[in-house]
Nucleic acid binder design. Structure first.
Lengths: 348, 348
DNA sequence: TGATTGATGTAGAACGGTTTACGAACCCCT
DNA sequence: AGGGGTTCGTAAACCGTTCTACATCAATCA
């Protein structure tokens, strides 16, 4: 029964020879295609098991099926992206697709190289998370590979789908919450993109912040500061804000990650949160719950976003050609860092 | 000059036709192989640029070169793994290799499936970070694909390389530091693996902890508690430790991530760090520096580990067959969470 | 009984690259 | 002019699958 082929590598031909059938028959069994008798199937499956045969994805890919979807993340330091990946994994659980992740280190050039690498690999589809690349580049990619964007508003796109949180509403929720808690002088520590073309998401949240401030009659207090997402830059921006002569009563931060830096700087400067300064983050990552942070945040449930994105992508791979744009509703989770202001007790 | 092929897809044949040369000639140029005149090369390169041709990795992979290395991470919530990835990226910077990441969600079964998926893809090599799988499974994998392990001591392995921090020393450093700061009742909150076979890394650190405690004459205070890495489990374990009748003076935690949970629980119970409880983490992730955590930790410089792993892997891909085992020296970074005990001032 | 149908299995052409084996052209020497 | 060695370029096989088109055979139908 043992095969004494010259070659050690087990291919579909080895299996065919072992089972005494044709290569095509084995292929049919593998794809459980039409026209296979119960007898043939069991015979082939026995051979596969005996030889420990595994079809090679590269060879399959040459015929179009890669069974792989690529996820492009800006970085993996931000736990929000973990939530997204949880959702993606959940959606892919019972499918034949595997997800493989590329990390662009938030760099525009690496991102482009990675997208190319992934389409060349090839992948059946791509999920781009908060991409830095231009809409034109996304379009080019989408022309070759089914594509879904997360965290990148592009409501008029027809060639790819988008999955987003309603960022404008999220910002409004924050302002509304802080105002209700007695804060009026509310600054927004926003994100500076390296690529000037892509202010889309940024502006959504900034638009919401501005609009809400105006509606509450606080237009005089509007103050938007932008910093890159790095710890150093965030700290520097926070220090500038808090040491300026007009220290704000509250800071709304682009991301929990940045908010944690703000909390640290506040402590360094001897400020007490929330008595001297309220802080609100975004994403409601697991760190918010830790009591040393106790950080109010906006939950945009990354899991749901990831799940939807994966679902839409699979639909697209299966042939859908019309665009879908999913918008989730954010939810504010209040914690200690924005507790209502005690009625004007002055410092201490 | 324009080609009017029926097919829209640009392959090596399209390029060959456009440049008026053979397919093999184009392939030679692509791989800058021997036997290409300057004239031919420039002509082909012009065609490639004009047509925007990109070789497909899947087709290449069939002949052995995938130009891809796979990294398997248990999860991406732990920022220590980000450090490792930074190192990997740095090492791969100027090479032709792309890294693609698979996330096993710390689950043994997913991990196995992912490794299979990656070898099938195929990848030129694999970096397995803190794998849960058995040494036997690793061996099987290494037989098919060059493999390097990070965070998994296997000093006698010959088929694959390992990159590790000296975990035993790391644990000793912690105990030594705490003892010097006046703490004697030191508990170790360690990690429980789902797979009972793999206690290798765990035991290294536990061995170091035990040995150091004994050497300091504190064998009566040895107390090892194990919990899975999840936030919930860590919290529960911390609560049990801190609410027990013999509350330890210090807790040494498997990971910063877990230490942060301990800090949170301590605060919840009204304990003051470090007056009532010292806490030490492991990995020296960026969160340690935040003043609300101010967490003493052991730096095992993930960047270096990642860098070395990628370097060793490339060497192996290029043909090295002897095993190398890299061991980095950890460094203790003292912060507020383990400040020296004030001379017996009792509670408050 | 011959034609039609349906089920099952096979041969062989893709897919898009790499690589081997070899031919043609050119150079330099004697 | 002929022999020997480079250099440049080509044709064709190969990698491991999928998939189309077709062959075979038994059962059913008119």
């Amino acid at each position: 029964m043992t095969i004494s082929q010259k070659n050690a590598r087990i291919t579909i031909r080895t299996v065919a020879a072992d089972a005494g059938v044709s290569v095509a028959a084995v292929s049919k069994v593998l794809r459980n295609a039409y026209g296979v008798s119960e007898d043939l199937r069991s015979r082939v499956e026995a051979s596969i098991a005996r030889l420990g045969y595994r079809p090679r994805a590269a060879a399959r890919a040459m015929r179009g099926q890669a069974d792989t979807i690529g996820v492009l993340l800006p970085d993996i330091r931000n736990p929000f992206f973990s939530d997204i990946m949880d959702g993606v994994h959940a959606a892919l659980e019972r499918t034949r697709y595997q997800s493989l992740v590329g990390i662009s280190q938030s760099a525009w050039s690496i991102e482009l190289a990675l997208v190319d690498a992934m389409t060349d690999r090839p992948m059946d589809g791509l999920i781009l998370v908060a991409p830095r690349m231009s809409a034109a580049d996304v379009t080019v990619t989408a022309l070759r590979t089914p594509t879904v964007l997360i965290g990148h508003h592009e409501p008029d796109a027809t060639l790819f789908d988008t999955v987003n949180d309603d960022d404008e509403l999220g910002a409004r929720l924050v302002v509304g919450h802080l105002v209700a808690a007695g804060y009026t002088d509310i600054a927004f520590l926003s994100l500076a993109m390296e690529d000037p073309m892509n202010l889309v998401v940024t502006s959504r949240r900034e638009i919401g912040y501005r609009a809400a401030m105006v509606e509450h009659g606080l237009s005089a207090h509007i103050d938007i500061v932008r910093a890159s997402g790095s710890p150093r830059a965030s700290q520097a921006a926070a220090r500038r804000l808090l040491q300026g002569r007009q220290r704000p009563q509250a800071i709304f931060c682009w991301t929990d990650f940045i908010a944690l830096e703000v909390l640290s700087v506040a402590r360094e400067l001897g400020l007490c949160v929330p008595r001297d300064l309220a802080v609100v983050g975004y994403d409601n990552t697991s760190y918010c719950d830790l009591l040393q942070n106790d950080l109010t945040s906006v939950d945009q449930s990354g899991q749901v976003l990831g799940l939807q994105a994966a679902r839409l992508l699979i639909e697209r791979i299966k042939g859908r050609t019309t665009a879908e744009h999913f918008l989730a509703t954010p939810r504010l989770v209040a914690r200690g860092s924005s507790r209502p202001r005690s009625p004007e007790r002055e410092t201490l």
